[in-house]
Structures are given as structure tokens and as C-alpha cells.
Nucleic acid binder design. Sequence first.
DNA 1: CATGATTATTTTGATGCTCAAAATAATCTT
DNA 2: AAGATTATTTTGAGCATCAAAATAATCATG
Lengths: 407, 407
Amino acid sequence: MSSKADSDLVRRQNRHLVLEALRFAGRAPRIELGRRTGLSLATITSITTQLINEKVLIEDSETGQGTARRGRPSVDLKLNPQAAVVMAAKISIDRLELALVNYAGERIAHEVKKVPTYHLPADDVAKHLADFVCATLEKYKLKADQIRIAGIAVQGAAEASTGHIMWSPAFKAEDIPVTEPLLRLTGISFQLANDANLIAEGLMAREHYQYKGTAAVMFMGYGVGMGLVIDGKTYHGSTGAAAEFGHMNHIPHGALCRCGRAGCLEAYASDYGILRHAEGLPDTAAPPSSAVEPEVMLALEKAARRGDAKALAAYHKAGEAIGFGLARMIALLNPDRIVISGPGIRAFDLVEPALKTAIAEGVVPALRRNLKIETLPMDHDMIMTGTIDKLLHDLDRDTFAKADSAA
Amino acid sequence: MSSKADSDLVRRQNRHLVLEALRFAGRAPRIELGRRTGLSLATITSITTQLINEKVLIEDSETGQGTARRGRPSVDLKLNPQAAVVMAAKISIDRLELALVNYAGERIAHEVKKVPTYHLPADDVAKHLADFVCATLEKYKLKADQIRIAGIAVQGAAEASTGHIMWSPAFKAEDIPVTEPLLRLTGISFQLANDANLIAEGLMAREHYQYKGTAAVMFMGYGVGMGLVIDGKTYHGSTGAAAEFGHMNHIPHGALCRCGRAGCLEAYASDYGILRHAEGLPDTAAPPSSAVEPEVMLALEKAARRGDAKALAAYHKAGEAIGFGLARMIALLNPDRIVISGPGIRAFDLVEPALKTAIAEGVVPALRRNLKIETLPMDHDMIMTGTIDKLLHDLDRDTFAKADSAA
DNA sequence: CATGATTATTTTGATGCTCAAAATAATCTT
DNA sequence: AAGATTATTTTGAGCATCAAAATAATCATG
């Protein structure tokens, strides 16, 4: 089991509790922190004065609501924006994105750079990113050592343990080293993670900052992805590349997938899979090397809504694939929630009937009795938001919850 | 996150550490407990004298190895067998089993009762069990309140949260209430769990008592089951009925399963599924209502080994089904180990080639690079052993690690 | 406008836990 | 019988939590 406990552990855990409560509430007086954490006011005083001395928290005299009640007025505490700078990056097709955020979670910067990613040699990926990072640091007059924590979100299979992108729709190249060269070129140590995992993390963390159960967050669009939250924690698998839902087999020896294998769920339910079927191409037709243009998918939706039989059949097939995929996931994990999002959700009404039928056919009733399936409109910023949430949370836990965080 | 920490938590966790070390070692002197737990000798003395006063531990003066070294001789500590009595039950087809174990893990009793389970009305299940429990208690001159913890293992979908057996091959009836009537009739509060989960728990717990990663333990035989260990802890899902691997869909609209649905993995890979295919019956042929006799399966194996084409094809199909099922699980969870066991493992050589091919076809290479697949000969006692291990572990954590366990 | 009521925070003293170091215990060596 | 050696216990310091008491900073009110 876990390791030995001592008074250090106690303080660390309770400091973390206070920081978490404050991150959730934004600002709160000591008495409310006591209520939220269950700690006595004496302890809250002890912890907060320490944190204030370390410049992790600040008192905020602006009374906030003019609610002039009698009695000594409370004084709000909040996270000190100056305590740290966080850098979050996002790699997607033909586009790099970078955000700087202060410790209070306020965005300092948001930069975008267009880079033709697909044909980039593996070794150039980190170079482009590093250039972008350095330019941004310079623009905002920051030194690398002021970045207290940094992370990168990428679509596809990201291996956290090695810091390599094993495979991503943004690149033709495979097994791309990222974190090691970035550290060398910029002096900043980045964490690499799959974008779906990060969205799931962000989403569930927001959910009253205390989601406890098991949930799957699925994305449909150019590809099909999934982030898993198991017993309240995002699950990353043994190498950090879990929940490859899009490349979970749907039909043995089935349709040809972008990844070169046959029968993956994506080959039926991603943009190109749907399109291929709607166009009457055989399942063995090679997937396109670049993303399907949004206009093309919009046109296909319109056709389906006009009643075009081929288009409808393609969406039906996609719904069936997703439904059986989810059914298999449910059989294995018995989650209490499924959240479906992604750009493809625009056409969710077209896939939903087949999806529901497939789940009904593929899952033992006992397992779907308490299951909630929700949809969530896609917001492209969710990836950045999730990444930032995770980084701030890690910073709270691993750095500022420790007693000597002063630095 | 977790709740507030105080000195109580510290003591509880460190007591647990000591108990765990002693359960693993069997017996050990204080100095070794210090080494194993990382706690100072002063703390070990404090904790152990307390535990000895509470009669949870005892000193064992029998020097053990006659290794007469110089210096003050160490004195071994061990778990006090008298500290508690644990009851473990197992429900399988036509058979109830009961074991009594003392706190040191030594078996006090092992009773078996033949009961024709299949046609039992739902309400009689708990009655039969209760009678058996009461008779056993009487035989060993024990009162119900001496049983400190009790658990039941059952094949099929057991819902821990409600204490109902949702569905089991042992019963025609469904949704059978178990723990509630048992408590009423015997005064003992049982935990209900799926047998595969319990085996997984026992297996991984033994593994140096510190297995940390993600593993799947699969069983093949009359049915197909799975127990999941995720990040070092057995995973039970939101209602306690996770890892219904046998009823994970393999082929949409596929072969008829015992559970009434179509295309479940079990319909291809369980004894009856293999047999049905070997006998040339259609996939829609109704599964038998009772277990396939072991002799029949042995005969089928022999036929396959003689080169009988139909038998070979049936095993091939089973291997493919299991392989794709595992491939899907791997895509989702990226485990670092898969352990395959169960009575069906006798014929593993017959299914293995197709199984391996299916995994190779169905899993992204990155996810199987570090994956270990092992087989383990089935030992029917594993279920009992796993149940007992889990109960003792729970007892350590929830009862004896608490400071006032004296009772 | 001074005094009391009220609410928030800090201080104080008690208690519990771990730990390093010193003290004790129980052996074997010589 | 006096040392050497190894295991355990005792002692005193340090740190954390908490309940209760003390203090601070307001509003209410006669």
C-alpha cells in the first residue's frame, strides 16, 4: 500500500485541501475554508499564514459584496497570481498553440502559429515547437526558469512515459520525440499527454471539483478519441497511451483504417469513414492523408437531412460502430457516465438512433440501468482549458502543497 | 481529493503498514518491521506494544531458526490467530462452499454442501445459504457475532452495491437478493462479489503484496470472466459488476448467448459455444441450460488433437473471439499484464494461435510492446483463497488499523 | 456617541504522532 | 567475569491538530 505517514504528510495533505478549496471557490474567507475542508479554524489560520508568507496566497481586502453585516468583517483569501507561470501547448493539424497562465488561472498570453505539420520530419517537430516557445517567452519577457510547470496536448497516441508522440493525425511521421529535445532546446520540462485525456480531466475536475466515479468522455470528428476517468482519476494506462477508443477493433478483418489496420472503430465512425461509406467507396479504399474539410462534412450532413439514402446509411453505420464500441467499454468498465463531444456532434441526431439501438443490443441491462449518456457541444478551447486545469492541479499538489514551497 | 489528515490518520496508516508487513512475512522481529515499513524502531515499538495490548499481535518466543548469533536475540511477532474469525462462501453450480479462517489466515473449517441450484426460486437461495451458515457455525461452536467479516464469491454478475446476484450460470432465476436476507437470517453481514474479481484481487495481492500496475485476469471455461486490477486496485465499477468480459459484444448480431443476447464473446469462447460450433449446430441454437460435462469437453479436446477439422475450427473461432476481446480491452486500458486461467486453459494450445493472431491484428503495436501475457493453471481453490485474502486485507485496513480496534 | 452584540480570526494549552539519540536488555566471545 | 554485539525501549524535541479562550473589527442602539 502507500508509504509511511508522518506530520509532514498531514500538513501536505491539509495544505492541498486548502489550495483546492480556494482554486474551486476563487476567493474565500478563512471561516469558509474551514467549513469546506473540515479543518478547525486554528489549523486554517496556521496553514494560511504560512502560505501567505510563502507568497502562495494573498489577502484580498476588496470586500467583494457590499453585504455589510454586523460583526468583524471576513477577509477573503485568494491564490496569488504571481506565484507561478504555467505554459500549456497544443499540437493539432497544421497548428501550434501556446498559452501562458498565472497561478490564479488567468490567461496571460495565447499565441497561435500555423505550421504545415503533416510532412514535417520527426526531428523538426520539437524544433518548431521550441522556436515558438522561445519567441513567446521573449515576447512576454519571461525566462524559462519562471515557468513552473508546462504541458503539451496532442491528438493521437502520446506516450507520457517516454515523451514521444507514437502516432498522430497531425503527422505523417511516427514515434516523434518531443519532451526530451524540448527540454534541451528551451530548458523547460514539458509533460506530454493525449488531448482526450486532458479534456476528460478538465471536465471532471470542474464538476464541483470532486467527481468521484467512473466516466468516459468520447470525441467524434476527424478521429474518434476517448478519455477515461476511473474512480475519480484520469486513467493513463501503463505507458500513458490508454483509451485508444478510435482504434479499438469494431469488426474483425473489417474496414481499412488510417492506422493501416482493419476494422478499427474509426474506420466506420470518423469523418473519413463516414464519407467513404456515403460516397459508395469500398471499405478497403485508402483513407485520405489529410483531414476532411469541414465544408465537405457539412454538405454530407445536409444531404442526410434531405433524406439522401447513402448519407443516412453512412451515419447509421457510424452510430452502430460507436454504439457497439461504447457497449464493449461498458461491459468492461461499467461507468456511471458517458459524455459525448467533438465536432462530429453536430450530426449527433443522425447517428443517435443506431447508437442507442447498438447499446441496447450490446449491453447487459443491469449495466445500463444507472448509466447516464450526455452530449456536450464541442468547444475547441476545451483542450487548452483541460490542459491548464491539469497543470494547475498538479502544481498545487506537487509543488505548493509541500511545506517548503517558498523556493 | 481525499479528506483532512490528522494524527489519527497517521497512526492508522502506519498501523496498517505494520499489519501488512506482518501478513506478508508471516512473522518478523521488530527490527525487520522497521526495515520493511521505513518507520523508526521507536515508532515500531509504540505501534506493536499497542497492537499487542489489543491482542491483535502476539510475541512468538519460539526462536525459529536456531541461528544463535551474538547480541540480544530478536523476538518474532506474528498476527494473533485468535484476533478474529473470517467466513468466506462460494456459490457455484449445484454447490455451496464455506470456509472459516482465523486472523492469521489458517483455515479452521472447510465445508461443502450439494444443492441443486439451477431451479431454485430466487427467494430460496439465501435460505439455503443461511441454513448452511448456521449449521456450520453450530458445528464449530461459534456465534454469529464472532465472525468479524464475511464474504461471498459468485460466478456471474454480482452487484456489490445492492447485494443482489443479477445473473449467474448457477441459477435460472435472476436478480436474487442475497446479502440482505442473509443478514436477517444469520446476523452476519456478507459482502458479495464476482469470483473473477476476487481471484484477481488475491493473485495480485500475493504478487509480493505490492502489485502497482494494471492487469487483467481472464478465465475461460463454462463461461468467460475477467477481473481487472487498475493501478494496483481491483476495479469494481459503479455498481460492483464490472468486467463482464464474457458478455462484451464480439460480433454485432452474432451468435446466440446464454444471456439471451446475440454476439457475446461467451457465445464463441465458452465451453458451450465451442461445442455448438464443433457439433455443426447453427449459431442460433439455444445454449444448454446446464454446464457442459467436463468429459464432453475432454472428448472434444481429444478430437481436436487427433486433427478433427470441425473441432479445430471451433477452437480457432474461440481463440479469435478471445483475441479480439482482449485486443479491445487493451485498446481501452493499455494494461501491462494479462493473466489467462480457468478450466478451459487445458485446451489453451488449441486456441492460442488464433488468439495471438487476433491480438496482433487488433492492437496498435505501441500498446502491445510492453504487454506480458501469462497463463496460469486453474486451481479451483483460487476463488476461496482470493476471497479470504481480500477479507483479511479489508479487516486489516478497516478494523485493526484503527486505533481502538480492541473492541 | 459610547456600550453591547455579533462575527472572524488568532492565541493558548493539551494531546498525539514520529524521530534521533541515549539507555537498557539479553545474548555471545574471549 | 568483562567486553562486544545486537534488539528494544525510553526520553525529549519537534510538529500538527483541536477546543476553548482571547482578541479584533464591525454593526446596532439607546
